[in-house]
Computed example of a mutant assay.
Amino acid sequence: MTELAEGYRVARSAAPVREQAVINLRNLLTSKYHPGDRITEAAVGELLGTSRTTVREALRQLEAEGLVEIVPGKGPTVAMVDEGDIRDLYEIREVLESFAILLFTERATADERARLANAFGDLEKAHESGDAPQVLAAKQIFYDVLFEGAHNNAISTLAQRIYWRVARVRLASLSAERIRVGIEELRIVHRLMESGQGQKAADAYAIHMQNARDAAVEAVKRFR
């Protein structure tokens, strides 16, 4: 068995196999596949260590999430995203995440604020590495703490769905310069949050998201 296959195999645990398959397949599609790539159920089943029936059920779930397109006569493929999709999705991200920042500033506990500060510190360390996947992973932890401290489960659920739709594009858009500028933008946001200036932090974050959207649009153009 290859190292790649080993990394995505479904474990035999208390969690339902189908649920694990959805999670592992979602990670697989956004890290190893590209938009438009065909998905072969047999090959994916071998990678995940599950039956083709389980793979088929997981694909249906990811189709509902917008990650997979099932075309008659062609089978499942990784969903394509165009410039219009990216602009739409980033506009929603801007609204949701800016609101989460405002809510966090108003509602977060002292422990949640400390955890966010630690998460941002880890994000800065990831930035120093210059490794885009590491930066994205650290950012996700930052967002997890942010959403938890906003105390609004709906924001977290919606934001996570959008995250997976744009995961591949986000990775492609993170040039060394964009990583540097993005960290500087988030540093301003975090400082405003720490000082209790929720609305200013949300406004600064909106600017950060607009710049991230522009970088993502350019990344989509390179996929052509």
Results as ranks from 00 to 15, higher is better:
192 L>Q: 09
195 S>N: 13
198 G>W: 01
82 D>G: 14
80 M>W: 15
65 E>F: 10
180 R>H: 12
114 A>H: 13
190 H>V: 08
14 A>Y: 10
198 G>S: 00
204 A>D: 02
160 Q>A: 13
131 D>I: 04
58 A>W: 08
111 D>S: 15
182 G>F: 02
26 R>E: 10
186 L>I: 07
99 F>A: 11
171 L>S: 09
106 E>P: 01
214 D>N: 14
157 T>L: 15
206 A>P: 05
163 Y>K: 14
180 R>Y: 10
133 P>D: 04
16 P>I: 04
211 N>G: 00
175 S>T: 15
148 E>R: 12
69 E>K: 08
217 V>D: 09
125 K>N: 04
1 M>S: 12
192 L>G: 02
68 V>Q: 06
163 Y>F: 14
211 N>A: 09
56 R>T: 12
11 A>H: 13
39 I>M: 06
191 R>E: 13
110 A>E: 15
71 V>N: 09
161 R>D: 14
96 L>S: 03
140 Q>P: 00
206 A>E: 08
120 F>I: 03
11 A>W: 11
124 E>C: 11
15 A>N: 08
153 N>P: 08
223 F>A: 00
22 V>F: 02
66 G>L: 07
29 L>N: 02
89 L>R: 05
142 F>S: 01
223 F>M: 13
133 P>T: 05
83 E>V: 11
133 P>G: 06
221 K>M: 04
59 L>K: 03
6 E>C: 05
9 R>E: 02
191 R>C: 07
1 M>Q: 08
201 A>P: 00
33 Y>H: 09
56 R>S: 15
77 T>A: 15
55 V>P: 07
128 E>P: 00
144 D>K: 07
34 H>P: 03
52 R>A: 06
27 N>G: 14
141 I>A: 12
196 G>N: 01
202 A>R: 11
10 V>E: 07
212 A>I: 00
